[in-house]
Each structure stands twice: as structure tokens, then as C-alpha cells.
Design a protein around this nucleic acid. Structure first.
Lengths: 156, 156
DNA sequence: TTGATAATGGAAACCATTTTCAATAAGAAG
DNA sequence: CTTCTTATTGAAAATGGTTTCCATTATCAA
């Protein structure tokens, strides 16, 4: 019976400690929120979600953890132009790899999963070569298409 | 001898008027700055540049114009994570179509033009199909790779 | 030239994100 | 289990890029 007692669910702790960081209650609960959702949440969204369970976790910590996760390459930070950043766990259990269509009018975004296979092939090669050429340790990527959604188009 | 008298250089005026907007001195000067540069400038960068010639153009107007240009699909707005947005004229005379490698450590970005041809083929098809499927009027796109640059990697 | 109204600029307001700092808790060592 | 070092945290205050307000000015169709 491996790992009784502590048994703090998922193995994120190891990941953190492996990078020289500590696993804490706030961090664990933020990971929980991120791995359960299937949408891109803002820092405040996450804060409110975490708050339901641990009402003493502060918004500041949420921001700090999100920054840390981004550095570690576990999370991607998106900017859809509405003034607040969104975060997604890479390969976030739920919705698989995807990209976004962003409306420059209402700033809403649509997630799409089309072409992912063709993309992957192309992106993997690009990633490999760019890493070498520019001495970059590439952790992840984003592709976003900008334009006007159905509703915003007819408004104008 | 077509268009004497006014002869205000480039044909941006028509583009603006065609969309129901007016061509003004601030707008013209912002377009001038954008079409001459070959790097992604922040609103303030543009403001300072414009200010050299027209010291009475306000920062507010720069923001407003940039937003307008983004809506019109003439400009792309980038977020490299350093807290200020960057703007680039599409097909901005100088550097051609390109994408960015963004360092999550120092927030600096590297512009690359590799793979653009292969990309284009793929993206055009994606753009066409996504437009139809999601009823989106796609104006442009971005691709960004995130990771750590050479310097930031050895720091940690 | 004129008039309707789009566009502007400066100052004030916004508000997401960051910084500060004293208090707390993770985890290695004993 | 207790101790000790120090990473982490939370609350409040500060920051600073971007927006909003509004009286004034300028564009351009008629």
C-alpha cells in the first residue's frame, strides 16, 4: 500500500520539489482547480474557485503560483485582449490540445481543435529547429486567429 | 496630374475613409511611424516617435488609433508578458511576415522568419475552413513559442 | 463657407498585477 | 517528535499601462 497517510492526491508535489519548490496547500488547491476545469480561467476566476474550499488563500498567491507554473512550463498564459490574462494547464486533462479564435470586437474567444494533427507535425519540426538555432528552451506555444465573430460583424 | 495640392503621401487616407473614418494628422503620423519601423513598438514608443514631429499628439490618441487599426485588421497587437502591448503593421514594409519566440524569464522576444512558407500553406487552409465553420471574419494570426532564452536558462 | 459630428488631448479614473513586509509553515536534519 | 532555516503566504498599499470624461477642435460632405 504505497503512500498512505499523506496521500495528497495527485503527484504535483514531486514536480514542485523537483524544481526546488515546496508543495503547499494553496499551490495544491490551485493545481486542483486547473486540472479539473476545461476552460481558460483568469487569476480571479481561479481565486474564487479556490476560495470555495480554502477561504484563506489570497489572490496574491494565485498570481504568484500562476507565474511560477508558467515559468515551469506547466501552464500557458493567454491574452485575449480584454485586459485580464487567462491560464490553462498544458494538456489539461479535459479539453486536449487546442488553439483560439479571438474576436477583436467583443474580445471573446472560441476554442478549436481542428487541424491539430497537421499542426503538430509542423510545429514539432519548427520547435526542434528553432530551439537549436536560437538556443531557446521551448516549453510550449500558442496560435491565435484574430478577427470579428458573427455577432460583432453584423453590428458594424 | 492626379491629386496635387493635398498629396499627403501614402494612401492610408482612402483606407480610413473607406471604413467611414476620417484621416487626421495624428492618424497619419502614427501610420508613418508604423510603416517605417521594423520592430514591434509599444504605444508609448509610438507616442514618443510621433511626438518628435507633432509634439501635440496625445498618448490617448495613440491608444485610440492603435485600437482602431487593430479592429480594421491593419495592425496586430502582441503580448509578450512584460505588461505592455506591442503593435505591428501587417506586412509592415520592412520585416516581412514573421512570428516570435518569447522568453518567459526576461520577457524579451526574438523574431523569426523560418518556416514561413510551410506555415503559410497550412495557415491559409486553416483560416479558410475556420472562417466558415465558426462564422469568423479572420483578419490575421499570431504564432508564439514560449520558453527560456539562453541567458535565462543558465541563470537558474 | 458652413455645419454636423468625428476626433482630439489632458487630466482623472480604472483596475489587473506587483511589491512590501511581518507572520507562517514546509521539510531537512537531528 | 522537535528544531531550525528559509521559502511561502496574505493583507494592504503601490504601480503603471490603458480607458474614460468632456470641453475644444478639425475633418469633409454639401
Amino acid at each position: 500500500m504505497p503512500g498512505r497517510r499523506g496521500m495528497r492526491s495527485s503527484g504535483w508535489g514531486g514536480k514542485f520539489r523537483g524544481c526546488g519548490y515546496r508543495m503547499t496547500v494553496p499551490r495544491q488547491s490551485i493545481m486542483d482547480v486547473l486540472s479539473v476545469t476545461n476552460k481558460h480561467l483568469s487569476a480571479e476566476d481561479i481565486y474564487m474557485e479556490v476560495h470555495k474550499i480554502y477561504s484563506n488563500v489570497g489572490l496574491t498567491t494565485v498570481y504568484r503560483t500562476l507565474e511560477l507554473l508558467t515559468q515551469m512550463g506547466l501552464v500557458v498564459k493567454f491574452d485575449f485582449g480584454d485586459g485580464r490574462a487567462r491560464y490553462e494547464l498544458i494538456e489539461g486533462s479535459k479539453s486536449g490540445h487546442h488553439h483560439h479564435l479571438v474576436c477583436t470586437g467583443c474580445k471573446r474567444s472560441i476554442e478549436y481543435t481542428d487541424f491539430i494533427n497537421e499542426e503538430t507535425e509542423f510545429l514539432e519540426r519548427a520547435e526542434k529547429e528553432l530551439s537549436k538555432k536560437y538556443k531557446f528552451d521551448i516549453k510550449n506555444h500558442i496560435i491565435q486567429f484574430y478577427g470579428l465573430c458573427d455577432k460583432c460583424r453584423e453590428k458594424k
